[in-house]
Design a protein around this nucleic acid. Structure first.
Length: 511
RNA sequence: GGGGCCGUAGCUCAGUGGUUAGAGCAGGGGACUCAUAAUCCCUGGGUCGUGGGUUCGAUCCCCACCGGCCCUACCA
């Protein structure tokens, strides 16, 4: 039993929810569900990032106030997460009063500790990007993306003394080898820190859509700077100290590789500056690619199907909620880029879900119905299947614990394969009713029971349905893993149901 | 310009401290018929991107190059 706090990034509401957001959120959800299964106290936080000039502009363009605009767009993320059966415990919006309060408390602490000072921000500005560049990061004074000439801008800003944290960050990395995973991403962050850190501008005077700077009412905080603090808002920093100490710093941020720098450099430094221990773990994931193409909204120009064009709800409507969750978790290993395609979803669906799992449940329940009068027999303690089950349990447990859902599911499906092979070998359909038949079917049912437990973080709805079909009351997530994930616990309390196919095969690749 | 990642069987990906390089899917052959035309068994010589280097020996170490990608300080 432990406390487990996991977060997704808060998503920028200028963008519609797409598969990339879903990928990250589903992974976090599976981890949250896994830890609830272990019996941990879990807090799973997601939400939306709602400040910044682009949001304010978008609102004006649509003829509504920024508040109304973000209300609408934030709601779309909630709808997407509802469609994907995301079990978040809290949904934060950076426009909420609680967030203002935490941000102001946090940054006041940083200010009081002497890590914020006023200076003139001077930089090269690209109107198209709405962003600043340094001379080095520019292309000889031209925008590296648009190629247009950058204009010199000056603005009085408050700065965060990031440069003061180079040594403390390196020490923190040294003392916490698991701070950033996988290791390649950790190396990337370390290389960046070692290359030298510059102070960063954290406020703006040119816009008003943001969190006001408490000690200077001319300024609001720069959007990224208030955004990171959401992780503390969610656990009551500066408002409910007990809540904060319950969940922090032993916490987990799941993030995409493109925001590594903010989470692995800025954020721990900010925490240190506020006198707070940094988050204990940042898990970095890669990107999904469509047809080998990278899909971010900045590369929209090229045309073709982009990941950002695919709404999660379209996918769940087409394939079902759990199949999409399964695909997102199974297909790629967290940390590397992965491939995303309709064909891939269809293949996973048919082979893993329909043929392996669905068919196993169907064939077993049919035989139980016809030869055991619908009552599930008990398993043998010394079954041939027991070793395969134990391997699956051990491997899946270890994989879930190290943020490797794909390996957890691979291990789980290993047991499904072993069970199908076991049935083939024993051929219960040829047996007369009796002890031998009961033993074989009891063992198969027990294997199925264990599979549903191991798979429930990924496919909670279907796992619960299978649980019911094999005659068990409640759901696999009702029990604590340590006691339920043991061979020999299967005892039917309800009648076995044949039911409709759990995953009807998909004939041709759709569309 | 600078930093970093990737390039392994038709496809999607594992992998190692340097011996005979792996899985799933697809393909081929066989078995079975309880099951969603499902399942089970057998079947994997692919220049481990290219060219060099180090070495007795490299897919894995070093260098260069080609191709794809990320970051370069507001896009999971």
């Amino acid at each position: 039993m432990a406390n487990y706090y996991i977060t997704t990034p808060i998503y920028y509401v200028n963008d519609a929810p797409h598969v990339g957001h879903a990928y990250c959120t589903v992974n976090a959800d599976a981890m949250a569900r896994w830890h609830r299964l272990l019996g941990d106290d879990v807090k799973f936080l997601t939400g939306t990032d709602e400040h910044g000039q682009k949001i304010a502009d978008a609102a004006i363009k649509n003829g509504v106030s920024p508040r109304e605009w973000t209300d609408q767009t934030s709601q779309r993320f909630r709808e997407a997460w509802d469609a994907l059966n995301i079990s978040y415990d809290d949904f934060i919006r950076t426009t909420e009063p609680r967030h203002f309060e935490t941000v102001q408390k946090f940054l006041t602490a940083v200010y009081d500790n002497g890590y914020i000072y006023k200076d003139v921000y001077q930089g090269l500005y690209c109107v198209s990007c709405e962003d600043y560049y340094t001379l080095e990061s520019s292309n000889d004074g031209n925008c590296p993306i648009h190629g247009s000439l950058l204009t010199e801008m000056r603005e009085e800003n408050w700065f965060f003394k990031l440069s003061a944290f180079e040594a403390p960050l390196l020490a923190y990395y040294e003392e916490h080898p698991q701070f950033v995973t996988p290791e390649t991403k950790r190396n990337e962050a370390l290389a960046f820190i070692k290359s030298g850190l510059r102070d960063i501008s954290i406020t703006r005077t040119s816009i008003s859509w943001g969190v006001p700077v408490p000690w200077d009412d001319q300024h609001v905080f720069y959007v990224w700077y208030d955004a990171l603090i959401n992780y503390l808002t969610g656990i009551g920093f500066g408002r409910e100290d007990d809540e904060t100490s319950t969940w922090w710093p032993n916490s987990h941020h799941l993030i995409g590789k493109e925001i590594l720098r903010f989470h692995c450099v800025w954020w721990p430094a900010m925490c240190m500056a506020a006198g707070l221990e940094p988050v204990s773990h940042v898990q970095v994931h890669g990107w999904l690619l469509v047809g080998g193409q990278k899909l971010s909204k900045t590369m929209a120009a090229e045309g073709g199907v982009k990941l950002t064009d695919i709404a999660p709800v379209e996918l769940t409507d087409e394939f079902g909620v759990d199949p999409i969750r399964y695909y997102l978790l199974r297909e790629t290993s967290l940390g590397n880029d992965g491939d995303f395609s309709h064909e891939g979803i269809t293949a996973r669906y048919n082979t893993d879900l329909a043929n392996s799992l669905g068919n196993l449940v169907a064939r077993v329940s049919t035989i139980v119905a016809s030869k055991c009068a619908g009552v599930g027999p008990s398993p043998e303690l010394d079954s041939d299947l027991r070793a395969a089950a134990q391997t699956a349990i051990d491997d899946a447990e270890s994989a879930w614990n190290r943020f490797a859902p794909n390996h957890a599911l691979e291990a789980t499906w290993g047991l499904i394969g072993a069970t199908n092979a076991y049935l083939e070998q024993r051929a219960p359909w040829k047996m007369e009713p009796g002890e031998e038949l009961d033993a074989v079917l009891g063992n198969a049912l027990e294997a199925i029971r264990l599979v549903t437990i191991l798979a429930t973080p990924a496919i909670p709805e279907v796992a619960a349905r299978i649980w019911t079909r094999i005659g068990l009351a409640g759901a696999p997530s009702d029990e604590v893993f340590a006691s339920s994930a043991q061979w020999g616990r299967y005892r039917a309390t309800l009648a076995i149901e044949k039911g409709e196919p759990l995953f009807p095969r998909i004939k041709a690749s759709v569309e």
